[in-house]
Design a binder for these strands. Structure first.
Lengths: 117, 117
DNA sequence: AATACTACTATACTAAAGTATACTGATATA
DNA sequence: TATATCAGTATACTTTAGTATAGTAGTATT
């Protein structure tokens, strides 16, 4: 990790901010399930609701909105009967994959370590 | 990201678990500040309390305990007057650095993207 | 005419995370 | 004797995150 030269509380906070951003983006209970589902394929609202066990439409709607605002998810409305709304990952959203993979690798090692103790 | 073959809710949850572990480990409001402080140098309790602006001894104590239980932080008591307790990152705790760095890199790009829009 | 589907929203609630404030016991210093 | 330091703990509170349940508008099917 690139070390900080002047280790003041202010420097430290500045260093942490971008990491915090990532945690806030993917950190809720339902963010990862949504992102992983969308990394697999484009989903409609009801499809996501069925795919992600236990999620309520309120949370799904809320989280999709947040992810859209942050540019990770794309929302497209189609004039079918009844209307269909498709959610997909943006290229930017897909770029999170390598971050998630790094976290996953460490997490798997962690799990093995815990189990082997 | 290593894609899942059979995309069932169960498979999906299993895939997410290790990622969730990492988020739970470093995800609270005070975990990163503590880890970063300790990655810089060994700290005593009061040093951490002064270094990390706004933290209460209750939260500091609580989070250090959690980090110790999870093997990221080491606690050593010295029989000085008054007693001193030193907290340091374990080798395992230090291994989180590369994960944090990956997150930070993505987060910095995210910040630049948001600003440039 | 009644029911069902889609994509949500509204309201009220519970649970988890974090804060505020004061306090403890052992020792040292003024 | 009064005050300070260290490393915390105890109790009560607020704030944020997530849940439960019901309802909406528009269209299609039975």
């Amino acid at each position: 990790m690139n070390k900080i030269d002047t280790y003041t509380p202010t420097e430290c906070k500045k260093f942490i901010l971008p990491v915090r951003d990532v945690i806030d983006l993917i950190g809720g209970k339902w963010r990862l399930p949504i992102i992983i589902a969308l990394s697999f394929k484009i989903h409609r609202f009801k499809e996501l609701e069925r795919q992600i066990e236990g999620i309520t439409p309120r949370m799904l709607s809320k989280e999709l909105k947040e992810l859209e605002i942050n540019g990770l998810v794309n929302r497209e409305v189609f004039n079918t009967m009844p209307v269909s709304v498709q959610y997909s990952l943006t290229e930017y959203g897909k770029s999170l994959d390598k971050v998630i993979e790094t976290m996953r690798d460490w997490g798997l090692t962690h799990r093995n370590k815990i189990i082997s103790e």
